[in-house]
Nucleic acid binder design. Sequence first.
RNA 1: GGGGGCGUGGUGUAGCGGUCUAACAUGCGGCCCUGUCAAGGCCGAGAUCGCGGGUUCAAAUCCCGUCGCUCCCGCCA
Length: 439
Amino acid sequence: MERTLVKDLRKKVGEVVTIQGWLQKLRDQKKMQFLVVRDHTGAVQVVFEKAASEELAARISGITAESAIRVTGMLIDNPIVKLGGLELQLQSVEVENLAETPLPLDPFAEALPDMDYRLDWRYLDLRRPEVALIFRVQTTAEMAMREYWIKEGFREMHSPKIMGSPSESGAELFEVQYFDRTAYLSQSPQFYKQMAMSAGYDKVFEIGPVFRADPSFTSRHMTEFTGVDVEISWVDSHEDVMKFHEEWLAYVYNRVKEIHGEEIQALLGVEVVVPATPFPRLSMSEAYAILKAQDYALPPERKGDIDPGGERLLGKYVKEKYGHDFVFITDWPIAVRPFYHMRHSDNPGLTRSFDLLANGLEITTGAQREHRVDVLMKQAAEKGLTAGPIQFYLDFFKYGCPPHGGFGMGLNRMVMVLLGLTNIREATYLFRGPNRLSP
RNA sequence: GGGGGCGUGGUGUAGCGGUCUAACAUGCGGCCCUGUCAAGGCCGAGAUCGCGGGUUCAAAUCCCGUCGCUCCCGCCA
């Protein structure tokens, strides 16, 4: 018999239907058996009167929690049932996969185990509706991003993740054995998306894996994460990039809110707030002045940068002053930005760059890129980079490369902030960190 | 790489020098139970208190080391 999803049951009252899912709860009484069966769309109560068949009743008694089962029965409307006022009167049941007992992780236990233990048994943890929701939201968010990109004439690209030479610093690269030589895992599609500008692609995006060999132990870092990269030709400044970014992100928030807003509120207790555009902007020097005025002590050796504590404080400041969750921090000093960021013509110490802070967390870095090859080479040299390994990159700018700019956003960080999660592991299907390579 | 915190039945916690022959909740197993729905009741199994050393008459409890996890800083998305 054809499968009916739990969310569609209401329309089939009075019919015999088959559902497939997991036995969430069995309340085995003397005369009656109640089963709560859940699929990925919801849960429903199934009932069986033992007197109808002792043999069938005994089989039901043997089904363990979280077993994968298929149940067929008559669907009736029953207002007494608290779970949706529906009840499936069981006629037959098939156990597709009996769950062993006890479960190493009970998805419906009231107390949640440690994150690390949850990751060990992630497939059971992912059965929890609130966790499943995170990845339904992520799917919607990516769909919305693409909707907006396609509407704006972007092309999707997939750049290689195996690199022949360390690109920027080399410090945070993973080495991989590549036949008889060494290759590296890509820590950014930066160079390749710029190549697309030189190729005349005009506007591109890529959603793909990014690898960082940083031994970071925080609630917001991973060694492998999903990067969302955008690059746009013919921009006049980083302001054009920010303009695109904020409109695009507001669209994504809007779509997530209209599709999942109520459920996010119900399951995660978070109100999705679609950000107003334009987002507030603070130049680096303004940001510095604000922090100074609040007596925030920036580490002296980190002149020109803002530490995470400072970012959180700025997020709080913007929330209070502008009632906004986002803020662009612009015009970063050249010392803390890579060589390919374009510099201000009237202030060569500052770059045409920005970071986007969401609730005080850095989720994006962007800039207008330097497309004049002579200037680019000079800036690379200043940063101590030798032309050799990046010659292929420098060549992109020799044969008619338009002015351009773009940004890289962390998908997991965005989802984390969007849903008010406190740990990036929550917003990641399978976390990868310095000490975590499985499952 | 630097610093802080934590490590007690499957899971989450309590206990923080002797009353611990380690408690509670949940889960698990068994029995019972007018339709249950955070079901309920009774019974039971399950922990050499991360590991090693030390202090003490006495250590889950204090000290040192070690391992694991976690958070913060650095780095970034």
